[in-house]
Amino acid sequence: MGDRRKERKTGLMEIRSVSVGVVAIKSVSTGLYLAMSKKGTLFGSVKYNPSCKFKERIEENGYNTYASLRWKHGGRQMFVSLNGRGKPRRGHKARRRHPSTHFLPMLPS
């Protein structure tokens, strides 16, 4: 899912605003929407649905975090998160302040 190399287009995601503070994230290469299940697992959805909505927050450090608008775990938000190898982590395993949930949106070159 994640890739540190700029020349690879597989990790390129399109972020679209769907309402104030809420976004949909879509893969440019596959056309799938990023979605989160009730258990906090990230997956690709062919169709846009309520599981594809994420609250976008710009953090103090300039990075963005994305929390599921639909699902919570024990009353806590579940965040989009990647481990050190770029693989998705379960939403309830990460917290807003953890670096694995911080993303830096960039314009494609």
Rank of each mutant, 00 (worst) to 15 (best):
M1H: 03
G2N: 08
E7A: 03
E7P: 00
E7K: 05
R8A: 00
K9D: 10
T10D: 08
T10L: 01
L12M: 11
I15G: 00
S17V: 12
S19K: 14
S19N: 11
V20G: 01
G21T: 02
G21W: 04
G21V: 03
V22Q: 03
V23D: 01
A24L: 09
A24S: 15
A24T: 14
G31P: 12
L32S: 06
Y33H: 14
Y33I: 05
L34K: 03
L34T: 07
M36Y: 06
S37Q: 11
K39L: 10
K39F: 01
G40H: 06
T41W: 09
T41F: 07
L42H: 01
L42T: 07
L42G: 00
G44F: 03
G44D: 05
S45N: 13
V46Y: 12
V46D: 11
K47S: 13
K47M: 12
Y48F: 15
N49M: 11
N49K: 15
C52I: 05
K55E: 14
R57M: 08
E59P: 09
E59N: 12
N61T: 15
G62Y: 13
N64G: 04
N64R: 13
T65D: 04
Y66M: 06
S68L: 08
S68N: 10
S68T: 08
L69C: 06
L69W: 02
R70T: 13
W71F: 15
H73S: 13
H73F: 09
H73T: 02
G75D: 07
F79K: 02
V80R: 02
L82P: 00
G84L: 04
G84S: 09
R85K: 12
K87I: 08
P88C: 04
P88L: 07
R89I: 06
R89Y: 00
R90M: 10
H92G: 06
K93D: 08
A94T: 12
A94K: 01
R95C: 07
R95Y: 11
R95P: 00
R96G: 01
R97D: 11
R97F: 10
H98P: 00
S100E: 05
S100V: 04
T101H: 02
H102K: 14
F103S: 06
M106G: 02
M106Y: 05
M106P: 00
L107D: 14
L107N: 14
S109N: 14
S109M: 12
